[in-house]
């Protein structure tokens, strides 16, 4: 899927399985520069990185480290998302994410931070396509 965000997430903590919880987690960093095309219109005089673009950064990070068994699953839902502080040009997003199975589906839970604290908490739901 085409992305409205130019910046690509970089892995800062390699994906690994937590032996206790069984969750598959990883850490990412994304540099949000003023070159992002969305800033031209969001908003013309006061650039704020749209909340949906924060979600997009999480999606790209999540899909870069899908756990064994979840390959080929696609985004089915946003279970929940809370936005806490704004993201501006020049911010560095830190993304900590954790994949876990939920029945037939997979959940990816993510915390997004900037240097000013928590920016968002997001839970995405992924589902395998029926092999029809």
């Amino acid at each position: 899927m085409t992305s409205p965000v130019l910046a690509a997430p970089r892995v800062v903590r390699e994906p690994a399985r937590d032996e206790d919880s069984g969750a598959w987690s990883a850490g990412f960093s994304v540099t949000i520069t003023g070159d992002e095309p969305v800033f031209a219109g969001h908003y013309p005089d006061f650039p704020i990185f749209p909340g949906v673009c924060v979600m997009e950064c999480v999606r790209r990070a999540a899909e870069a480290v899908m756990p064994p068994g979840a390959e080929g699953a696609r985004l089915a839902a946003v279970e929940s998302c809370r936005f806490l502080t704004a993201v501006h040009p020049g911010d560095e997003l830190g993304i900590e994410l954790s994949w876990s199975p939920r029945g037939e589906d997979w959940r990816c839970a993510a915390r997004v931070e900037t240097e000013r604290g928590r920016a968002a908490s997001i839970r995405l739901r992924y589902r395998r396509e029926d092999p029809a």
């Binding site: 909340g51 502080t85 501006h88």
Partner: peptide, 17 residues
């Protein structure tokens, strides 16, 4: 208020706490 570069959060136009 429109946020300047150093305006503390919460910021206009964005999602709040």
């Amino acid at each position: 208020e429109r946020p300047g570069a150093d305006t503390p959060d919460p910021h206009p136009g964005v999602v709040s706490r």
